[in-house]
Simulated assay, not measured.
Amino acid sequence: MTRLRLLLAGILLAALCGLCVEAGLPDDERSNQPDGKTLATNYDSYVGEKILVFGTITEQTNTALHIRVEGDGVSVPLHVHAVEQTVESGSVVQVYGILRSDQVFSAERIVVVNAGEFTEQYKYGVSLVGVFVFLIAFFREWRMDIESSLL
């Protein structure tokens, strides 16, 4: 049983180290997911490319969504075409598709991340409840064995 635990701990530590290495990579090397600052400075380099952007909906018309992509205090407006769903203004969305010139984005897929005003607070609230339940269960069941830990 001890060997199994050591093996499992080694695997988990290796996975953690791998995540730390991945988190240390610059954003450009991770994926084709530009933020507002990157689009503002290098927009032309992404034209014609399939990219994924996160944005806040500012307006919706019959044919397009108008979103604002932000990053490092810079905001870039995009007009997303090929929209078949109705989304509330102020919602946060992920949009995957081809970036065109003149701030136009041909969407292949749109996913609503936060559908409304209180969605993000709800997510944090549920997460806090989960943390408290975990901590209560952990400290109810876990007991420190001082005698065996001193050996």
Rank of each mutant, 00 (worst) to 15 (best):
R100G: 14
T56F: 10
S127D: 09
T56G: 04
S75W: 03
Y43K: 07
E117Q: 13
R3D: 13
E84P: 03
T61S: 15
T63M: 06
V129I: 15
R68T: 15
G24R: 04
G18H: 06
F138N: 03
K37F: 14
V80H: 03
T119I: 10
Y46L: 01
L78T: 07
P34N: 05
L7Q: 13
T86C: 03
H79Q: 14
S101N: 14
L52I: 01
I57Y: 01
L78C: 05
A9R: 06
N32D: 08
K50M: 08
S89Q: 11
A115M: 08
K37W: 11
L151R: 12
L12F: 13
G97F: 05
G90D: 07
S127Q: 13
I136R: 13
A40I: 02
P34Q: 02
F139S: 11
A40F: 13
F118L: 10
L4A: 14
L13F: 14
T2W: 09
V113I: 15
A40K: 09
F105K: 06
H79S: 14
P77S: 06
V112G: 08
N32P: 07
A137Q: 12
E117H: 10
T86E: 14
I11L: 15
E59N: 12
E29T: 07
E59F: 09
T2Q: 11
L13P: 01
V74D: 08
Q103P: 00
Y43S: 02
V83W: 01
G36P: 04
P26S: 07
D27K: 10
R3W: 05
I98S: 04
F54Q: 04
L13E: 04
C20N: 07
G125V: 03
S45V: 09
R140C: 12
Y96M: 08
M1T: 10
V92R: 03
Y43G: 02
G116D: 13
G48H: 05
H79V: 13
W142S: 15
L8A: 09
S127E: 12
V131N: 06
R30H: 08
K123V: 15
L39K: 00
V113W: 00
G48L: 05
A14W: 08
L6S: 08
D27Q: 10
V74A: 12
L65H: 04
L150N: 09
Y122R: 13
R140N: 12
E88R: 12
P77C: 05
E84M: 06
T41F: 15
E88H: 10
L150K: 14
A64N: 09
G24N: 09
V74E: 11
G73F: 08
H79M: 12
S89W: 00
L12Q: 08
